[in-house]
Amino acid sequence: MEELQSALNAHMDQMADLVEKLTAELRSGLNPAYENLVGFFHAIDWKEPWLICLLSFHVALLLLTLLSRKNINFQMCLFLLALGGVYLAERLNSFLAGNWKSFAGQNYFDPRGLFLSVLWSGPLLVIAIIILVNTLFSLCYLIVRWKRAELRHRTRVARGKED
């Protein structure tokens, strides 16, 4: 019985330590994450022409997505292209890591692909999510139109039987 009591106390002490560590991390808040994010963005030379072109590409793609929101077929092509770009990000990172001297001032392309994930895949995923939400809204609108047409048809058929 004494062994069980000591094991239980050891377990309780371990749990208390874990809870204390967790509350200490929660008290520190998002400040460490914010500092890492700010450090990441300060480490990048935003005046490099290829970065300006990359950001312009994402802005143009976002505008194209918003302007073509009524054309579902075109949006599906954009959706597949955006997801294809995300899928090829690892290969693109490897290629750019080997050739960065020809277009960049410093090597941004780490083996884990953090830089490319943030500045290439992240915006493409946001655009894909916008297209997906737009498609869901369009489908809901289409279902409502279909149901209204079905109800009108049933009403006409019911009136035709009354006559």
Rank of each mutant, 00 (worst) to 15 (best):
L96A: 00
L54S: 09
L136A: 09
A24M: 12
L116N: 04
L18I: 07
A33N: 05
S94F: 10
A33G: 04
N99W: 02
R112G: 12
S56L: 07
W50P: 00
L18G: 10
A97P: 00
L67N: 10
C77Y: 13
Y34S: 08
W146C: 15
H58G: 06
L136E: 08
L8V: 04
A60W: 05
M12K: 07
A104Q: 01
L142S: 15
A24Q: 14
T23E: 12
Q5P: 01
L132W: 15
L64K: 08
S6P: 01
L4Q: 14
I129R: 09
H153P: 04
A104C: 01
S28M: 14
P32K: 04
A7C: 07
H42D: 14
L26T: 05
H42F: 11
L30H: 07
L26N: 10
L136Y: 09
K47R: 15
V19K: 11
G29Q: 03
S138E: 14
L114Q: 07
D17F: 05
L18R: 12
A10Y: 02
E20Y: 06
L125T: 05
G29E: 02
L119R: 04
L124V: 03
L96D: 00
L67S: 13
L132S: 15
A43D: 11
L51D: 01
V144L: 14
L88F: 14
I52E: 06
S117P: 02
C140N: 11
H153K: 13
A60G: 09
L136C: 12
L114M: 08
E25V: 13
L151T: 05
L114H: 06
L51I: 04
K101S: 08
N9Y: 02
M1V: 12
E2C: 02
L18T: 06
L78T: 04
F137L: 12
L151C: 04
V144C: 10
T135L: 13
L139G: 08
I131Y: 06
G29N: 03
I52R: 06
A33Y: 07
L55K: 05
S6T: 09
G113M: 04
A149D: 14
A33W: 07
V59E: 02
Q5V: 09
H42R: 15
I44P: 03
I52K: 06
G105R: 01
K21R: 15
F74G: 13
M1P: 11
H58N: 11
P49Q: 03
L37R: 02
M12H: 04
H42W: 12
L96T: 00
R69Y: 15
W100G: 00
W100D: 00
I129N: 10
D17A: 10
K161P: 00
S6A: 12
R152H: 13
A82T: 06
A82S: 14
